[in-house]
Simulated assay, not measured.
Amino acid sequence: MPWWSWLLIWTGLTLGLLALLSWFALSLFRQARGTLQALESLRGQLPTGEFDGLAASAVGIPAVFADSAVLLGRVEQLRAERTHRNQVRRDARIVRGKLMRHAR
């Protein structure tokens, strides 16, 4: 085969590769743009007022400088709240189970 046929083959393969890569890049760009538009529409549906108080309550005194009695009281309060939530969920499961058992 003459040298120019190899040049034509490799030029064609290189151009084909570049065309395929550009097509993949274009389709990826279109998908990313569609995803960003969907995220923008979802962001518009989120309520903004609910989270303002959470950010304000997160700011406080670091635990290093707080009194240990205050910290222990807070830990006990969180444990009591968690126990109460668990008990409420357990009671709801029991009621649901009784309703399901008597439904037959």
Rank of each mutant, 00 (worst) to 15 (best):
E81H: 08
Q37C: 01
E50T: 06
A55N: 05
L54I: 12
T11S: 14
G34H: 02
G16Y: 10
V95R: 15
P2T: 05
G16I: 05
V70T: 14
D67G: 04
T35L: 04
S57D: 12
V59M: 07
R104S: 06
T83R: 13
Q77R: 11
S68M: 03
D52Q: 09
S5T: 04
R93V: 06
R82K: 11
T83Y: 04
L26Q: 12
L39D: 02
G60V: 06
T35I: 01
L99N: 13
A32L: 13
R96D: 14
F29A: 13
L7N: 09
L46F: 13
R43C: 02
L13T: 04
T35H: 02
L21V: 10
T48V: 04
A92I: 09
A69D: 10
R89G: 06
R90A: 15
P62H: 10
I9A: 08
V70F: 09
F65T: 09
I94M: 07
N86D: 14
A103S: 11
I94Q: 09
A38D: 02
V75R: 11
A66K: 15
R89Y: 09
Q45P: 00
R82C: 02
A92R: 15
M100R: 13
M1Q: 02
L20M: 08
L17F: 06
V75Q: 11
S57L: 13
W23T: 13
R104G: 11
L36C: 01
L7G: 04
W10C: 07
